[in-house]
Design a protein around this nucleic acid. Structure first.
Lengths: 262, 262
DNA sequence: CGCCCATTTGACAGCTTTCAAATCGCGTGG
DNA sequence: CCACGCGATTTGAAAGCTGTCAAATGGGCG
């Protein structure tokens, strides 16, 4: 994995995969500075690890969650249902992401969380997380940053669904997942497994599965990607980025500036 | 203003408008408990107040902001541009909201912020805010909650734009603004001023202004709202809520549970 | 009174959905 | 090893919601 941008790999990231909550630590240390005690407190957070099957529901809308979860491996989605019965996926989480901070801090879950693949999840009691934020403010700030990033991605999704046509939306999603997988240290950027059915992709993009199918074929026909089952190979990064109107600013890959956080 | 739900006013909130940063304090105390020292520290935050004209740009995408802002009065929007030149409004802020926490914590702004009306803004130096979060963890947690709410609203918008038809989207926005104005203590819920042109509403909903016009007329024709210039009177709350598939769970109006936060 | 911008209206085009039906992929069982 | 079954993917044709383009109308301000 290279550490400087190239045409083939415009969004490199140092490789430093870790186990357990360390994945989450690695992620938040990208923007915030933590000292040894902070790290120890985070890694020492009491938690239990639970395994979920594919398509399992981790949190259901309107639940009153008692734990916050960190995704250790696998892929999950957040989704909402609207009255017509249609479903909208409002976010995708990869290993190292907090998957229901959103829900666990408030009383009532405003969306559901499901696994796309088998997944390992670290369950942290709500109160333990809040206590940690209180006792180690730097960690609290770091988790806050994580929430800010989540919100930033959500805003980009609003723009994606609201103002881009189907082909562009799809290309944008493919770019985002490539970069996020790379950030999380899963798979290479130019070729990755996207364990989503076309119907799930459609639910993430506000389209129908039929149309997603057509657009996937269009992107493939234009030589931007190559598909074999559910693995995606990006054949032409520059073109796909252009096709997807993709600008990674919203992912805030920028390194923390020296001294930006105590 | 009543304090218990009624058919005409399903989302009451105790009235306690305050001046300056107190508005923000009032908002975040809805979910988190702050002690006197916390409050004093927040209210004592060094800041300057700046006035903006209508349609002024407060933060521009790709800026490197040096301050975080709290909106003291007026209305602002966040928006993004896509390559086709179209604009998507990804959020609306009312008095008491932090309007560019999102931008100011990261290095590079991922969206722009503009005023819809003349607006008063409290500018807080980035570092002061971070120092506050470090020295008063409860305040840090409270601001984190604010970000979580913002993210929750963004997710609802994704669902709104992605999976609801034009009429429903519009009704949903009208419901949301009614509740948020009421939460913020601005105007009554059943009748409020929405200082947005139909083009701006369109940009918020991922529609065209022409179609927004048609849908506004449809809602009015069906007797759900009455319009006079840009003020909206909700003639039939129950029906509008149904038409907009509106469920206020995502606004997390639930009061903090006793002892939920130290 | 007149200009300018926002709103309104109508006709038409187009992107996406809908509805089926056919095909494919793959795990299961014979 | 091959047949079967079931869900996912593909494909085609037609309908529909929303967008586009233009022109008319309306309202506020100088």
């Amino acid at each position: 994995m290279s550490t400087s941008p190239t045409a083939a790999n415009p969004f490199p990231l140092e490789a430093a995969p870790r186990r357990g909550l360390g994945l989450f630590l690695r992620k938040i240390e990208h923007w915030t500075r933590l000292d040894a005690a902070d790290r120890a407190a985070l890694l020492g957070l009491s938690h239990s690890v639970r395994h979920f099957f594919r398509h399992a529901t981790i949190v259901r809308e309107r639940d009153r969650p008692t734990h916050s979860c960190v995704l250790l491996s696998g892929l999950t989605i957040r989704h909402k249902l609207v009255s017509s019965g249609a479903r909208q996926i409002v976010g995708i989480q990869v290993a190292g992401d907090m998957i229901d901070l959103q829900n666990s801090m408030f009383e009532i879950a405003d969306h559901s969380i499901q696994t796309l693949t088998t997944a390992e999840v670290a369950l942290v009691p709500r109160q333990a997380l809040r206590d940690l934020a209180a006792s180690r403010p730097s960690v609290g700030t770091a988790m806050w940053f994580d929430t800010l990033l989540d919100a930033s991605i959500a805003r980009e999704w609003i723009a994606n669904v609201g103002r881009r046509d189907a082909r562009t939306r799809l290309a944008h999603l493919l770019c985002e997942m490539a970069v996020r997988f790379e950030m999380a240290g899963i798979g290479r950027q130019s070729c990755y497994e996207l364990p989503m059915s076309q119907e799930q992709i459609a639910d993430a993009l506000g389209l129908t599965s039929v149309h997603v199918n057509r657009m996937l074929k269009a992107l493939e026909g234009d030589g931007l990607i190559v598909r074999t089952r559910r693995s995606v190979t990006i054949a032409d990064w520059a073109q796909l980025i252009r096709a997807g109107d993709f600008d990674s600013t919203y992912l805030h890959l920028e390194q923390r500036s020296p001294g930006s956080i105590q």
